[in-house]
Design a protein around this nucleic acid. Structure first.
Lengths: 244, 244
DNA sequence: TTGTAAGCGTTATCAT
DNA sequence: ATGATAACGCTTACAA
């Protein structure tokens, strides 16, 4: 049985509202009262119930983050950043991975809304047909920011300068004196990859450096980490892994 | 304004408990009632409030995962696994990264308890002096499982066969015909690293293969991924990153 | 089969 | 400066 504000009120002989007020550092309580409440809280190991607080105050102190795959270095670095900022502001983050599944993405967004997160950061699967679930969010009270732009949707986004990035990469190599430069393209459906390659090709052309088709590759699906890859581990009988 | 069960009760002319029952797929409601409720829910875009449900039912459907660093391949693969299983069971996971900070770990555990998570998976900083915060958890109603064993603490753990792993690695290389085998040890404080190296050394000795000290390194702090490393990005004025 | 009412632990609005 | 009391939205006995 967990000890509640009502319990503290009882043992201190004060009212619930008083106890609550003190616990929330509100103004207008005598030093004596403060002390009594704080001591009792300490003595009985009071732990605030954020669920109840959330119901009453209509804010949960948590935000949802929806990404494709936490195993992907891009997303885990992003996650780290989101968490850092969230923490600075006293928030904690729900992490959801949609994998490659549009359905999972939809499900997770709905789950986050049911959990009444105070906000949502979504890195949506962009190679998709329908964005209805994102559009629907715009009708709901929950604020969100999107990674990447969706045509026809007016909302907060974080976007990438893919063309600029491609150019920078090419320039860096060219300026270091390299000329036989290869390029690993992503999936043919990726607009980002297309832009980066375009920039690369343009830059090479502008500098008068020929592109050797031998060094152009296609269909990369992401970076491979140096980590233990455990595809389909659920199916294996046993597995071992090395802790850090 | 969000629509609630009370609203649905009003528009259908039914009682709150009836609406709740139907929505939760309980037995004992006429097809007609079911239909009425479901239609109204659909029509008005009812979204269950899991916070209220949590307060009432005393379970939140979320679990906390506390790790060191989501950027570390070991932890993000682990996180992926935890999430997969959580999802299968209808849970969602709070992710907290303690970095290298013992204080952060403590803070996060407390935060999870306040959020009334249904359970906790903790990969504690093991090179620490005090485990009071973990011991304290044992007094609380929240179930948890630990990554690694803590002396004198009776609780559920997931452990690693570090010695066995070291042996397996050595055997694999030896059986492939290699003999000039190096070893990258971790921090000198890591018991895990020590065990793995011991196993490696023992195996080499048993097979009569000499160890060349030239190939033994110390102090590795983790795997380095192929990802964009952005140390101290908060301090930078601008940064760019490439989406996947 | 459906309705009534109490309760979950807070916060917030009044009085006092 | 403190206390009653009503929300918050849901679940769950217990009645009808």
């Amino acid at each position: 049985m967990n000890i509640t504000i009502a319990d503290l009120a009882k043992v201190t002989g004060l009212a619930k509202s008083t106890v609550s007020g003190v616990l929330n550092n509100k103004e207008g309580f005598s030093a004596k009262t403060r002390q009594k409440v704080l001591q009792a809280a300490e003595k009985y190991g009071y732990v605030p119930n954020e669920i109840a607080r959330g119901l009453s105050s209509n804010s949960t102190g948590s935000i949802g983050l929806i990404i494709k795959d936490i195993t992907n270095p891009f997303y885990n670095h992003m996650t780290k950043g989101v968490q850092e900022v969230a923490e600075e502001h006293g928030y904690t983050v729900f992490l959801c991975s949609s994998g490659e599944s549009h359905q999972a993405e939809i499900k997770h967004i709905q789950a986050m809304v049911r959990k009444r997160v105070d906000g949502l950061v979504i890195a949506p699967l962009l190679e998709e047909v329908s964005f209805d679930h994102i559009f629907a969010l715009n009708q709901k009270p929950v604020p969100f920011v999107l990674l990447g732009k969706i045509q026809g949707l007016e909302c907060d986004t974080v976007e990438f300068d893919d063309y600029g990035g491609g150019r920078q990469a090419a320039e860096l190599l060219l300026e270091s004196g390299h000329t036989r430069i290869g390029f690993v393209r992503g999936l043919s459906t990726s607009r980002a990859s297309k832009l980066r390659f375009e920039a690369f090709a343009d830059t090479m052309r502008q500098r008068g450096v020929p592109i050797d088709e031998k060094f152009i590759f296609d269909g990369a699906k992401g970076l491979r980490t140096a980590s233990p890859q455990v595809p389909g581990w659920r199916k294996q009988k046993r597995r071992t892994a090395l802790p850090p």
